[in-house]
Structure formats: C-alpha cells, structure tokens
C-alpha cells in the first residue's frame, strides 16, 4: 500500500479540522454553528477527511481529471425565452415580496 508520504509531492498537512478551520468553513458555507455543534462538526469532518486520505494511495500521475463521464456534443439553441410568465406564482414562494420584486433587508448602510 502506498502511503501519502511515499508520493513524491510534498505531503499535505494532516487533515484535521480545528476550531479556526471550522470558523473559516462556516464563513465559506454561510452557516453558523453553536459551540457544541462546532465541536461535533469538527470531529465528524476530521473523520471523513481521514478516510479520504486514501485518495493518495492511488497513483494518478498523468491521468486527466474527468468531469462528465458521458461525452456529449456542445448544445446550442436560439437565445430566446420560451417560458411563460410565472412571476406571480414564483413570488408566492418568496419569504417577502413587494411590488413584484423579492424583498430583502437593507443591504447598504
């Protein structure tokens, strides 16, 4: 079995998530956790990252990343709207709306 450290690139830092990192991820994800949730999440994420380390056991040197498994041709269409007007139905799902627009709290002080 090849370990991370056998691979000739610089070994990545240990994949564990600490308090500081959790805060960074909360920021990126726009999610705020309570103190207790923070701890539990850090523990769970670290466990998953530990598991994922095994990606490094496989030699993928020279392999091109694959994003879509079934290749299709580029698809073109006329730049023309085909939807009917569903503004009112859509606005009914909005938490708040006013004059046909989505309403949000003040964004600029």
């Amino acid at each position: 079995m090849i370990r991370m450290t056998d691979i000739h690139e610089a070994p990545p830092e240990p994949a564990s998530i600490g308090a500081e990192q959790i805060e960074y991820l909360e920021q990126l994800a726009r999610i705020r956790l309570s103190g207790e949730e923070k701890e539990r999440t850090a523990r769970d994420l670290s466990k998953i990252l530990d598991y994922i380390e095994m990606l490094g056991e496989l030699d993928t040197e020279g392999v091109d990343p694959l994003s879509h498994p079934v290749t299709t041709e580029p698809v073109f269409r006329e730049d023309k709207a085909v939807n009917d007007d569903r503004r009112d139905a859509m606005l009914r799902n909005a938490p708040e709306h006013k004059d046909g627009c989505f309403k949000v709290p003040k964004t600029v002080e």
Binding site: I17, I22, L25, E26, L28, A29, I31, R32, L33, E37, R40, T41, D44, L45, I48, L49
Partner: peptide, 17 residues
C-alpha cells in the same frame, strides 16, 4: 444555519473545503 439539517451542513462545509 436553522434551515439545513446537520448532515447537509457538514457536506456543504466539506464541499467548500
């Protein structure tokens, strides 16, 4: 924070990572 369940939150945070 309130809307998503904790599993979804973890996956979103991992994805961002």
């Amino acid at each position: 924070s309130v809307g998503f369940g904790s599993d979804a939150q973890k996956r979103i945070m991992l994805g961002n990572y």
